[in-house]
Write a protein that binds this DNA or RNA. Structure first.
Lengths: 222, 222
DNA sequence: ATTTAATAAAATATCGATATTATTGATTAA
DNA sequence: TTAATCAATAATATCGATATTTTATTAAAT
């Protein structure tokens, strides 16, 4: 009796394209407020009507797209209020998940944090930083921190918020000083987590999220 | 210059059917683990292929359905572990939202809580309680409590968790004693919230959620 | 000029048919 | 028997075409 093997089965077009569009939105390939018309999108991604719509529907459910009845799909507008909401919720939920992970994490959890941090470091030390790779590894590092929280629902919410947050982060110009401080925070969060310093790690993660949002926040008037 | 009027526009079939299927799942019209085949579902809901799939895709994104690549959709299995996760996350997020609402809520918020509580009461006092109506009003009451939290993302997560939680609740047999205590908790939560007793209201809501889950939890071995 | 109405154009949402993939059942080999 | 292979059946996912709804354009009216 073999296990159902999760669903490593063949990917669907709908699913492939969902991932593609998701990445493109986060990476700012579309403007805030931009209309995503069906026919042009089909042409752009080389797929048919149905799988495209399924992908957009799914993205709408995670807040990376907004859907209006009979009026199609568009990229959400950006605003200070929205960013503040995402930022606050992310702090609230991700910090809770980190504390739970610190309470429950095992050797494998610790090892994964170290592994992902190492990979992130390696990417940063390259002469010409591969932006897409950095994004992927940065996400993986943050996920590794909370993975042991043992709560699928919280992990799901963290992913949703992370995606929305990243769209804002990539919208803002990079700042070398802030970047350096963020990197240092990564290191400290890693060490504090593995040292099981629950509240200190949580507090630092909260600060880290706030600092990550700083550049994007500056784009909006108070 | 007229406002875009939200999207009160014509509903789509996809959207109508999404709401219908969502309600049917929460109300236990399908068995845990049951396969949702496309053709039979089209026949059952009297709609075509595409809008059905879009509705199912959306439901999968909120966790009320699971999707497997190339193997369609099914109702999620139930388990103690899953229920515990949903219950804990709901406590964590909904209590936070309540506290924020208590901090920020205005007259309108207070009035809405009173109004929704009153409606819920009225439904309960009927000779023959209309189950569907009670569910609707119960959801509205809980939403009214947290609505003023001013966080769209937290409200969204609360809705997702509420739906998943309700499926479990409706799975378990009703217990008159527990029901009476839950009703009394509603009253107290309402009063404490309007009295701005932040931490007491939060604590009671947490207990309320735990007690709501009690009957369902008893269905699973420890 | 600015709104209102009617028409044309464009876009969305939906249908019905089909290709692709998974599942079932039968057949053969170990 | 059990396992493995292949064909048949059934189900999913996708395509292409069409009906419905929205948006843009033009003409008429205040």
């Amino acid at each position: 009796m073999t296990q159902p093997v999760l669903n490593a089965s063949t990917n669907t077009i709908s699913n492939d394209i969902y991932q593609l569009i998701r990445a493109d939105i986060i990476n700012g390939k579309f403007q805030p407020g931009e209309k995503l018309q069906i026919k042009p999108m089909c042409a752009l991604y080389q797929v048919g009507n149905s799988p495209l719509r399924e992908a957009l529907t799914k993205l709408a459910a995670t807040g990376l797209i907004v859907q209006q009845n009979q009026r199609g799909f568009r990229i959400p507008q950006v605003s200070r209020k929205d960013l503040e909401d995402i930022c606050n919720s992310r702090i609230h939920i991700e910090v809770a998940a980190l504390k739970m992970a610190i309470a429950k994490g095992d050797d494998h959890w610790e090892a994964q944090i170290l592994a992902q941090y190492h990979q992130l470091q390696k990417t940063q030390q390259q002469a010409l930083v591969d932006k897409a790779q950095w994004e992927r590894r940065h996400t993986r590092f943050h996920n590794a921190l909370i993975e042991a929280c043992d709560s699928p629902s919280l992990l799901g919410f963290c992913n949703i918020l992370h995606d929305q947050f990243d769209r804002y982060r990539r919208l803002a110009p990079a700042d070398a000083n802030i970047r350096a401080e963020l990197d240092e925070q990564h290191r400290k969060i890693m060490l504090l987590s593995i040292a099981r310093e629950e509240s200190e790690a949580g507090e630092l993660l909260a600060q880290h999220i706030k600092l990550s949002a700083k550049a994007a926040m500056a784009m909006f008037p108070k």
